[in-house]
Design a protein around this nucleic acid. Structure first.
Length: 644
DNA sequence: AAAAAAG
């Protein structure tokens, strides 16, 4: 998520994952589903054989998860497993080149660069405590250090792990540093609250821990993004934070950097002496006491945050961990047993683990809600309340709570007060709207014309530009139908939605990311937070009913200062958001079609009371600190500290 | 009305 410099690392990780699966760790993997974060860890990189898709299909037949059982729409009857990936890829391959070029040459470059790097400079930072740490211990070198007698013991560097986490230094795919980066300085930032800490302008040792700086450098992050410039001192000062930042602006780093830095400096808190869970005998099942907890609304986003956390926790005592549903729980339990200091989770699976007595939140000093407005809306709020208020998590005064999102409706801000204490509100980017990096087009298309218009658009896209196109629809059923349609029209498409198995979801996402299927049809599951480099076009085949969803969706493109295009199909069925859509387009300096204004005039007056927040305070008041702008709310005293 | 998230 952060600057976009991270792209290379993730790509590399994916290539590692694509290798033959049963090598390296010695674990038998026969057809068993292994979630991405447990895959390919110690295994040395193997050059990819072929294009990889047939290996995948060998194991594709298995694993119908509960999502599939629940569905009233049995995909299995119409087409099985990953046929979508198969059906186009044969013709493409026979044509030579196709979608796989990039991937294979990429992995070669990576190998070359890697060797070069380590034969040359062996720049031993850190204290290299490999012996003390691991030699008396059967634990293998997993890249983590320890905390002993009040001292942070940094683990020795490890080439294999660095390659896995950060990729090769001269890999062009990761040299995003500086692309449109200076533009960040022009982005207005508004901070409000009591005694807002002064922002920082670079990554430097006070306030950040020196070891974190080393990892930041390894990841080739050079300058903090605006949200990071503020979140770092705010979190370091022990304050709570509600951060509203444009998508792709480095929010993940915004919370990972200061939290990891503080954890590096302060060390773990001693686990409670007496453990009730201990009564189960001498079994290996320990209870985990994460010092930090990050909650996210989708599994893929949780996985993505975890991958970032791994980079910045490298060689430190902090062991990141991730748990989410739809994946084998025993693997996650094993991972927790190996250490769980910074836990990223989706709510359901976390509750499950708490009920099993395997996770306790009693030592959790940092709580992050990513995509916080989503996490506090009707679907998630009860689960969040349960985790935060009804388990053993320290109360709001004894922990720090950080919330991040690109959108923060006023009523959600009010709800969020329950979880925050004297927080700083941060608003980054064009207030209340999307960035100008994205060119937004609205086209009037009746439902029955959508398919042919979509084909026109796809045909007109220059094939030489290997950009990715992400198409949003409203229903899972439509996602299936549309991706089938595209495949039958000879477009390399895949789809992602909640009724596909987790393995299918991950395969689809990877296939999209690597460009093998540069078209992906998605439901809301892919709308938020996912950082997919090189998405050049987002198409809202169906517009959402909530304007915030639209903001998040188009935010999948134009990330990290790059530009992107968004096209939306609008018809009378979407008039519910026409007013807010026009406001949004205005704020982002976009062209507004005449007919759209006409629809707005026709619509005004009737049915306008729809949506949260009721009468009109939404839209304009959106994404600003409601304590300052929310109207007759003076109960919090005077907030002035607006810095620019 | 739909999507997401536990099994």
């Amino acid at each position: 998520m952060s600057n976009g410099n991270s792209n290379g690392g993730r790509l590399e990780q994916q290539f590692a994952n694509l290798g033959i699966s049963n090598q390296g760790s010695g674990r038998p993997t026969a057809g068993r589903y292994v979630p991405p974060h447990l895959r390919g860890h110690p295994s040395p990189l193997q050059p990819r054989r072929g294009n990889g898709w047939h290996q995948r299909n060998e194991s594709a037949a298995a694993a119908v998860d509960w999502n599939n059982r629940r569905t009233s729409f049995p995909r299995a009857d119409t087409w099985g497993g990953s046929r979508s990936e198969m059906s186009y890829s044969s013709p493409q391959r026979s044509g030579g080149g196709g979608w796989n070029d990039r991937a294979s040459s990429q992995s070669d470059r990576w190998n070359a660069g890697y060797r070069q790097n380590f034969s040359g400079g062996r720049g031993g930072y850190g204290r290299g405590s490999f012996q003390e740490d691991f030699s008396n211990n059967s634990r293998r070198d997993d890249g983590y250090g320890s905390w002993r007698d009040g001292t942070h013991i940094i683990a020795q560097r490890n080439q294999r792990i660095e390659r896995d986490l950060f990729g090769a230094p001269d890999d062009p795919e990761r040299q995003h540093t500086g692309i449109n980066f200076e533009k960040y300085d022009d982005i207005p930032v508004e901070a409000s609250g009591n005694n807002v800490p002064q922002c920082v302008s670079q990554f430097s040792s006070p306030p950040l821990d020196t070891h974190l700086l080393i990892n930041i450098e390894l990841a080739h992050y050079t300058t903090p993004t605006p949200v990071q410039k503020y979140s770092i001192p705010i979190v370091s000062a022990g304050r709570d934070l509600m951060a509203c930042a444009q998508t792709g602006s480095g929010k993940t780093g915004g919370f990972l950097f200061p939290i990891l830095s503080e954890l590096f400096k302060k060390g773990p808190s001693p686990p409670p002496q007496e453990q009730p869970g201990y009564s189960r005998g001498m079994s290996r099942s320990r209870k985990a006491y994460p010092a930090g907890l990050i909650l996210a609304p989708t599994r893929e986003l949780a996985s993505q945050i975890y991958e970032e956390a791994r980079k910045f926790a490298y060689r430190s005592w902090v062991r990141p961990c991730v748990v989410y549903g739809g994946a084998d729980i025993s693997g996650q339990l094993r991972q927790i047993d190996r250490g769980c200091d910074l836990l990223t989770a989706t709510p359901g699976r976390l509750v499950d683990l708490i009920e099993r007595g395997r996770v306790s939140l009693s030592q959790t000093r940092y709580l992050v809600l990513d995509e916080a407005d989503r996490m506090l809306d009707m679907g998630f709020e009860p689960q969040i309340r349960r985790i935060v208020e009804q388990e053993d998590m320290p109360d709001v005064k004894s922990r720090q709570t950080l919330m991040f999102s690109a959108t923060f409706p006023r009523d959600i801000q009010i709800l969020a007060r329950d979880f925050l204490e004297d927080y700083v509100f941060l608003s980054v980017g064009r207030v209340g709207s999307t960035s100008e990096n994205i060119t937004q087009k609205i086209e009037y298309v009746e439902d029955e014309d959508k398919r042919s218009v979509l084909l026109d658009i796809l045909h007109s896209q220059p094939e030489t530009e290997r950009g990715l196109t992400l198409i949003f629809v409203e229903t899972k059923r439509m996602a299936d139908m549309l991706s089938d349609f595209l495949i039958n029209s000879n477009f390399p498409a895949t789809s992602i939605h909640g009724d596909r198995s987790q393995r299918e979801r991950e395969r689809a996402l990877e296939s999209f990311r690597t460009g093998r299927t540069p078209i992906m049809v998605a439901t809301a599951v892919a709308a938020r937070g996912l950082d997919i480099p090189n998405v050049t076009h987002v198409i809202n085949y169906d517009l959402p009913t909530d304007i915030d969803d639209y903001v998040h969706r188009i935010g999948r493109t134009g990330r990290a200062g790059n530009v992107g295009i968004s096209t939306a199909f609008f018809n009378r069925g979407n008039k519910g958001i026409v007013r807010e859509l026009i406001d949004l387009l205005k704020e982002a300096n976009q062209e507004i079609p005449q007919w759209l204004e006409t629809v707005a005039r026709e619509t005004s007056g009737f049915g306008g009371g729809r949506g949260r927040g009721g009468g009109g305070s939404r839209g304009r008041g959106q994404n600003r600190d409601y304590r300052k702008f929310g109207g007759n709310n003076n109960d919090r005293g005077n907030y002035g500290g607006g810095n620019e």
